[in-house]
Design a protein around this nucleic acid. Structure first.
Lengths: 198, 198
DNA sequence: GCCTATTCTGAACGAATGTTCAAAACCCTG
DNA sequence: CAGGGTTTTGAACATTCGTTCAGAATAGGC
């Protein structure tokens, strides 16, 4: 009963997220969202509420995806933990189109003045830190990393490098350079010879 | 001749930069700038032109400062190059008040749509990369880093870690964790024993 | 085929934003 | 002290933005 929806909700949210990620929260107008989604402004409001509500939903779902990705990265055989770290370091999300991470961008733009955003960002980053720490521990048990090293510090180093590579990528630094940096990061972590190449 | 200015231009630009850095370009209104500088909107316009011009001036001066800081970091004795790297890694600008780097923030917010900003950002990052590479080379000549390592990759790793630490800092991760990460980064780079502590 | 329920559209409104401008305030010079 | 040139101010303007709403459009149920 009633007129059915003409759009796919997931597709709309993807387009909205992409736009917020490219132009930021304050830099994105509702008219921009209307254009990239193909929906009129009225439809957007009736389906998703106001701009703020829509953004928080997209951001929340992105953070959930980040949490799940972190958990998935920990799953797997211990002797491949180092390879999973390397894979994450050399293929950050958005690597191909330079769009970057919505979490990092939103934190920089909004966490300063919005406590809810700040709290969610911190939780997401701590999940990332914990997953990286676990990966380092796995690699240590597998004998790929010096067992005397501090896994929390090394895991944090991997995360910091990942975020930094995204920032460099967004600035326009060429990907070849970025890959060499990522390799150097893994080489610096894996003190055991034989596990530093590609 | 004529009424003299009541404000100090440098102080105004500092306040403007701080505001842009906290709330971003689109998140900062001219009225915000009027409030933090103490100048009326009309005075801002007659003294510095429109919002766009004012921002570009502040950004340009910030990039120049970044360039000069990079050059200054290269000056100094070679056997202290590693310490200068460590100092830079453990005390990024804005570390104390979580304000972060205007260059990184502006790149994330505006480089996507503004070619001039993108070009200036890229130039600044390449200067940073080059200065880090030179520092690593100095430390290698001083015997503090494995001479067989790629100085460009290690220098890039330092820069990426620096940017990543800023992102983590802005998310609210505690500074103790950040310092441990920074230490791990230097430890990973400095293969020579005796140079990994504080 | 009509009724009803829901969605879609685009015009409209108030608030906020970037910008301009004329008048007042001010200090230096003569 | 008077004149002139510069700055300061705050009101005013045009534009943009977020938001709302009444009516048109569209599907299924009787």
């Amino acid at each position: 009963m009633g007129r059915p929806r003409k759009f796919d909700e997931h597709d709309v949210l993807v387009a909205v997220r992409r736009q917020f990620n490219e132009t930021g929260y304050h830099g994105t107008s509702v008219e921009d969202l209307s254009r990239v989604t193909g929906l009129s402004k009225g439809s957007l409001y009736s389906a998703f509420g106001d701009k703020d509500t829509l953004f928080r939903r997209v951001f929340e779902e992105y953070c959930d995806g980040s949490d799940q990705g972190a958990a998935a990265r920990v799953d797997g055989p211990e002797d491949q933990a180092l390879d999973r770290l390397r894979a994450w370091l050399t293929t950050p999300e958005g690597w191909s189109d330079r769009r970057g991470c919505l979490l990092a961008k939103t934190t920089a733009e909004l966490a300063w003045q919005d406590d809810a955003i700040a709290a969610r960002s911190l939780a997401a980053y701590e999940t990332l830190l914990e997953s990286c720490r676990l990966l380092v521990e796995q690699a240590q048990r597998a004998g790929h990393i010096d067992p005397a090293a501090d896994p929390a510090a090394l895991g944090g180093l991997v995360l910091a490098t990942h975020r930094g590579l995204e920032a460099l990528l967004k600035s326009g630094v060429d990907t070849k350079t970025l890959n060499r940096i990522a390799d150097a990061a893994i080489d610096g972590i894996a003190l055991q010879p034989g596990h530093t190449g590609a």
